[in-house]
């Protein structure tokens, strides 16, 4: 009986230390130079493009440090509402941006900068031989969707409605990353994910476009966070909407706003 409690104690201690360590590193990076640092909260799907844009911004603005936090848009919104310090917020859907704006946490008007569309994702080699959206309604096909409560699931529901078919999912995941993971590992025959996810997954996931996806287009807005470093925030937003930023987004599979 003694051992488990001992181990539990060590585990909880490790957790506490881990948390403190995180807190400290964040504090020091912020405290480094308040005027020369830019913190960007961005949807997870923007990770590769925004990281590159961040490096470009640092190169053209010597002395400026751009720090990113990539996560699900809802998670980031919750963190912003809880007072997390950020200068720029880029969300994967307008609904989440509106929620943050309603709390008066946004400076000015959010600017749409990209769109994303759903696609049918299948594991490498397409073992179930999926060719169309209708194939997903076959009873023998194991399809994974996002839960209707999250943006990618809401888009999936819209697409099903537009196509007039019902997909009986074997799992409704809480994030598009989880849905992609089930496809990538071959557990699912197919799933509905974003075009950019399939591109980012490389060879392990193949995409099959379907016309009804255009009815479930998601728009990505970006905005400066109230009380943040407004000068650099606007500078970064300008870079995102500039031809350079738009080209990078197009390369990653995003559509024009």
């Amino acid at each position: 009986m003694r051992l488990p409690h001992g181990i539990l104690a060590v585990l909880s201690l490790a957790t506490v230390l881990g948390l403190t360590a995180c807190g400290t590193s964040a504090d020091t990076s912020e405290a480094a130079d308040a005027d020369q640092s830019l913190t960007v909260f961005a949807a997870a799907s923007l990770q590769s493009t925004f990281t590159e844009l961040g490096e470009q911004y640092e190169a053209t603005h010597p002395g400026t440090t751009v720090t990113f936090s990539f996560a699900g848009s809802s998670d980031l919104a919750t963190q912003l509402m809880a007072g997390a310090p950020a200068d720029v917020f880029a969300s994967a859907d307008t609904l989440t941006m509106d929620r943050v704006a309603a709390e008066e946490l946004i400076d000015g008007q959010p600017e749409p900068f990209a769109t994303n569309t759903l696609t049918i994702g299948v594991p490498q080699g397409n073992p179930a031989g999926i060719t169309s959206f209708e194939d997903l309604s076959d009873p023998g096909t194991r399809v994974v969707l996002c839960a209707p409560q999250v943006p990618c699931g809401a888009a999936a529901a819209t697409a099903q409605e537009a196509a007039g078919i019902t997909v009986n999912a074997v799992s409704e995941e809480a994030s598009v990353t989880d849905t992609l993971g089930k496809i990538r590992s071959g557990e699912a025959d197919a799933g509905l994910v974003y075009v950019t996810d399939v591109l980012a997954a490389g060879d392990s996931v193949e995409g099959i476009a379907f016309p009804e996806a255009m009815d479930a287009l998601t728009t990505y807005p970006v905005a400066a966070v109230a009380g943040g470093n407004s000068e650099h925030a606007q500078g970064f937003i300008d870079l995102v909407t500039s031809p350079v930023g738009q080209q990078l987004l197009t390369d990653a599979g995003f559509g024009a706003p």
Binding site: A147, Q149, V150, V170, S171, E172, E173, A174, D178, K182
Partner: peptide, 17 residues
């Protein structure tokens, strides 16, 4: 996975809600 009544246990339901 996560499907109501099949695999969505209470912690997963909390995570989704």
């Amino acid at each position: 996975g996560s499907l109501q009544g099949i695999t969505r246990t209470l912690p997963l339901e909390i995570y989704l809600q």
